[in-house]
Design a protein around this nucleic acid. Structure first.
Lengths: 180, 180
DNA sequence: CGCGACATGTAAGCAGTTACATGATTAT
DNA sequence: ATAATCATGTAACTGCTTACATGTCGCG
């Protein structure tokens, strides 16, 4: 599916960037729905250059350090927009190790289950607070053609997702406590 | 992490099964949180045999067809329970191609965005109906030590997850329509 | 007798992670 | 000076998917 390819082309659509910058974007801005390590990004960039979807210029930082600043080409923009406009069927539900554990929870005692659930709950509550705070930085819904529009949509989705996960974990804890 | 290993050990904890049966479980019962193809299951079973976590007996079906019926060993049970009892930190949010597309949605026109959102919505609504129906088969919350307890928890989680996804998609459609 | 389900495997390749490897720049 | 961050790459390995490959059983 080459999704990383399009994720990179999308980021470069906003402006030129180095591989290092891209890695940061994946670990900060996009972390709620896509990630990539630098070890995957650098080879992918090389491939995109060979496909003529991006080009790069070498920029000297300080005295000698060479930075490769990548830009999207017209061919790259075309490829990106074609991908973006496709109507793709719903993906399979993502794998979830914790849900797998809970599926098998009858094999462990109720006290342990509650301990595990509380541990997850704590972490999701922290994540929820962080995401809500970020969302509250938006005073209003950004215009549909601004770069912030997409950010707002996915952030709203992330907040809702965490909120539901928290609610589910609390339900699970209650179901367990009923039998304690 | 060898999660497939533990997913298989968990299924075999309930009773002996063939590789074919396991594949069906992954594509029906566990599909909301874990999946595996037969091409991954058969080699994994061979590995589990070599690790002495499972054994198998050959059963003849019909005239000549040899079925390998796998059972979990005591060593396997031990390994499974050890995995099940671990307190694992929250996983990274799963990748989501549709959210990635929506993040970049400012690059396509509002009408196309709405078309894509409606298409997703339709599919998630169908999935939601199916999951709700399945959940309604439970007249009450199953006892904490029954095999059905885990099924109930994850099913409830799946229904809640779909419900929130639907709500989010509708929000996105509304945000888009405001600018149309 | 033909078709769909049952049943088991292997091979090639893509996607992604962890670890290895190196070096420059900037702020303290 | 020294530590954190900037910056770029490769190698080995795990996990997973798609395709290849084969053959039986049970039902209509």
């Amino acid at each position: 599916m080459r999704t990383l390819k399009y994720a990179i082309l999308g980021l470069l659509s906003k402006g030129p960037m180095t591989g290092y910058d891209l890695a940061k974007e994946f670990n900060v801005t996009l972390v709620e729905f896509w990630t990539a390590k630098h070890s995957q990004i650098y080879p992918e960039l090389a491939k995109l250059v060979s496909e003529e979807l991006v080009t790069y210029e070498i920029e000297i930082s300080g005295e000698v350090l060479e930075k490769k600043v990548y830009s999207i080409t017209n061919k790259g923009k075309e490829s990106f927009l074609k991908w973006l406009n496709r109507d793709e069927p719903m993906e399979q539900t993502p794998k979830d190790v914790f849900r797998l554990r809970m599926f098998y929870s009858n094999y462990i005692d109720v006290t342990s289950r509650i301990r595990m659930l509380e541990y997850q709950l704590k972490q999701h509550e922290e994540r929820y607070l962080y995401l809500s705070d970020t969302k509250n930085n938006f005073k209003e819904i950004p215009p549909a053609n601004s770069h912030e529009f997409g950010s707002y949509l996915v952030l709203e989705g992330a907040v809702m997702r965490e909120s539901t996960t928290i609610e589910w974990l609390k339900n699970c804890i209650n179901h367990c406590k009923m039998y304690k």
